[in-house]
Write a protein that binds this DNA or RNA. Structure first.
Length: 491
RNA sequence: GGCCCCUUCGUCUAAUCGGUGAGGACACCAGCCUUUCAAGCUGGCAGCAGGGGUUCAAAUCCCCUAGGGGUCACCA
């Protein structure tokens, strides 16, 4: 049995979006599950829209997700080059071969002629197919015209019979050959079209399974026709369902965050995104949702990929992210969240004054305190500001609720006194003393804790109060209590 | 418009060869826990697109209709 080889072949004309990422993931999972090879090929034959920046960003995204490749850019391999644009000689040779064998021909029709023709057909209610006008030019005639005219190469498509795509996910899909016209395989700029290049490269790279999005299903018979004319053995095909936006339309920038980079910047963890993406269009067949990458690899199979398109749901991704945020190793979370702190102008200044070791220690404590109550790395930062800066603002509703009664002012004084003397200054002791205070004053503990929390954090919600107090230390706590007393009128 | 694919709670999905009170997860709601907010736990709401067949029996097989998506580029 031949070894399994799959490929992910993005075109560098945009960022890697979640649809592409999911396709890459399924290819990768299939390869890893079956002990096959994952090939990364860059389909950059659209020289207008392709750019090295996008190539870079796609590679960055894949690495971030942990989707590595056995052959491709930066890694090399025996089937290179892996940039489609560098395989041009190969494509040209194959095209020439088809022309020589009479299976393809030169076409000199201009773009204007073709659009006019199509418009005409459309008005008559006919399908907009190419007429086949240049089909019967002799090779000699064509050679003459080539010097003075721009041209494309079209494949001579048989009109009889049918082409069947044996799809691993959908079963056999039948297409009548008569619906295809003589489509272009080499463009007038001398570059191959996607359908042509991709067939050649898949074959030459010995790809065994072509796993790609369903939007390619309708193009597959064309590719099979090309392969047949080239006398290639066909790969196996699996068309995975598309990922749609919440409004059921095809994914695009106007739908908010769709690229992997955006999720990354939002503070989504790669573990969460992988888990979430795996669940879009695939399920292990049991009631399991949270799975680490090894578990996903183990249970992955193309048979369990569903046929229907999936609409992505940000809420579920965020939920999963929250899960991973509080489950994975604390140090890892700290490493991941550090860049987000550095992005925050206000906080980065304070943090720059910290020493590296102290910073890590501090961050571990802070992250440990807040990560249970937030869902993204970005929110970790938002929830931590008062740990690093003293001039925070106070929640308005909280102020109305807790800082308006004279009795609260008195209680705050008592709290101040208690915290001034409590020894040692640690969470459990502080808790004891404040509980005692509540008994002594005969007020519910909440009447002590809520105003204290507001005074020292500016917020009405957050981590365990006693932990915050002990973390901040006596001086800063007392200072903040004093400031709250001065800032607000308790009457 | 032609062709192709798809159709189970709002969303992601499960349901070996037809027999299930149609299961799970997110979201939502309620309760518990509790110093707040979360988390966690418990419970609730909610679905087989519609119509015909086949069958003792259909979410599951067949047909039709409707809806959604894709594709028909010198984009990939």
């Amino acid at each position: 049995m031949t070894d399994i080889r799959v490929r992910f072949a993005p075109s560098p004309t945009g960022e890697l979006h979640i649809g592409g990422a999911r396709t890459a993931l399924f290819n990768w999972l299939f390869a890893r599950n079956r002990g096959g090879k994952m090939v990364l090929r860059i389909d950059d034959t659209d020289k207008q829209r392709s750019s090295p920046e996008f190539l870079n960003s796609i590679i960055t995204s894949m690495k971030w997700l942990g989707l590595d490749w056995d052959e491709g850019p930066e890694r090399g391999g025996d089937y290179g080059p892996y940039l489609q644009s560098e395989r041009l000689d190969l494509h040209r040779a194959e095209a020439q071969k088809l022309v020589n064998e009479g299976k393809a021909y030169y076409c000199f029709c201009t773009a204007e002629e073709l659009t006019a023709e199509k418009e005409n057909k459309r008005l008559q209610g006919l399908p907009p197919r190419y007429s086949g006008k240049c089909r019967y030019l002799s090779l000699e005639e064509s050679e003459d015209k080539k010097a003075a005219n721009s041209f494309v190469i079209r494949l001579l498509v048989p009109e009889e019979g049918e082409t069947v795509v044996e799809d691993l996910i959908r079963g056999p899909v039948v297409f009548e050959n008569k619906i295809f016209d003589d489509f272009i395989i080499m463009k007038s700029d001398g570059l191959p079209t996607y359908n042509f290049a991709s067939v050649i490269d898949d074959y030459k790279m010995e790809i065994t399974h072509v796993i790609r999005a369903e939007e390619h299903l309708s193009n597959t018979p064309r590719q099979q026709i090309i392969a047949r004319q080239l006398e290639y053995k066909l790969p196996l095909y699996a068309h995975v369902p598309m990922i749609l936006a919440p409004d059921h339309s095809k994914l695009s920038k106007r739908h908010g965050a769709t690229s992997v980079q955006e999720y990354r910047e939002m503070g989504i963890l790669p573990e969460a995104l992988i888990n979430y993406l795996a669940l879009l269009g695939w399920s292990p067949g049991e009631d399991r949702e949270i799975m680490n990458i090894d578990e996903i690899i183990d249970s992955f199979s193309l048979e369990k990929v569903s046929k229907n398109p999936a609409i992505y749901d940000l809420k579920k991704l965020i939920w999963l992210n929250g899960h991973y945020l509080r489950t994975i190793d604390l140090r890892t979370v700290v490493q991941r969240v550090l860049p987000f702190f550095k992005d925050n102008e206000h906080l980065s200044k304070t943090m720059n004054s910290y020493q590296e070791v102290f910073l890590n220690e501090t961050m571990e404590k802070v992250v440990d305190l807040v990560r249970d109550r937030v869902k993204t790395l970005r929110e970790v930062v938002e929830a931590s500001d008062y740990f690093f800066q003293d001039d925070f603002s106070y929640d308005e509703k909280g102020v109305e609720k807790h800082f308006r009664k004279k009795s609260t002012g008195d209680i705050l004084n008592q709290i101040f006194n208690t915290l001034e003397t409590v020894e040692p200054f640690q969470a459990s002791r502080i808790k004891e003393e404040l509980e005692k205070l509540s008994q002594r004053l005969n007020v519910p503990l909440a009447q002590i804790n809520l105003p204290t929390r507001l005074a020292i954090t500016g917020r009405t919600m957050g981590p365990e109060l006693f932990d915050i107090i002990s973390f901040l230390g006596r001086d800063r706590v007392l200072e903040r209590l004093k400031r709250a007393k001065e800032l607000f009128t308790f009457a």
